[in-house]
Amino acid sequence: MAGRAAARSTPAPPGPQSRPGGASAPLRRLAGGRASGFALIAALLALWQVSAEHWVRSENWPPLTAIARAFLDGVRSGELAEVFGSSLYRLAIGYGIGAAAAILVGLLMATVRTVHRALEPLVELLRPIPVPAIVPPLILLLGLDDKLKIFIVAFSTFFPVLVNTVQGVRAIDPVPLAVARTFRHSRLRTLLRVALPASLPYVMAGLRISLALALIVTVVAEMIAGSAGIGYHIVTMQYAMRAADMYAAIFVLAAIGYLLNRAFLLAERRLLHWYRTDKTE
């Protein structure tokens, strides 16, 4: 349901996208015009620092200065790069497989009625299952290594993209399809040249939801059965009483999530330049 709702809300009607220009326009573009947003983050971080120094007494609430030190150590030793590299590698493969499979199956489900009838109940049954619930049988089938985690990421990526693709194809204006039929385009050609591009705004919305989900699921999977990656690193540091190192990794994780989303929006804008630019982003 979430996927469907988001798909409906994300492709909002086109709106004016003018921003006040000026001398600081490039700088403002860089920050995406969110100065007040970043100010809020800075204020919260300042609150964190003050609270850790004066109010909260706990090993699990280190001051930001300690976290910054841990971050620099982690960068210098190359550990953070290794930890994140290994997670992002699994994320990329799992996401790629899950997204490609979902678009393919989605196109088939939306255009071939028998496929839809055959798969819909299964999809609706599998979709709400939280991945941690099925980890034990997955360990049995896939082991403990990359295969397990890549499958989990692909599984989580699959459903939002699938549901949005089906919705997207269903929402296509019938006129272009009729035109394609008039010109006696083959079914495959119509699918690839008309249906897929026309449903792309929906597909992209699904891909974007899945991207955030995939990052979360990667980390969770590594926490459950991991020996590498961000999730394992975070748990290990927690159990080693190195909260500063743990938060350093969490901050990097947040930054990566943010950057992935920004990069995705940029790509989307390129790909869907004909459609519209999302005002709210």
Partner: peptide
């Protein structure tokens, strides 16, 4: 595995 929950299933 942190916590060791995966040990015996594995």
């Amino acid at each position: 595995t942190a916590g060791g929950a995966a040990g015996l299933p594995a």
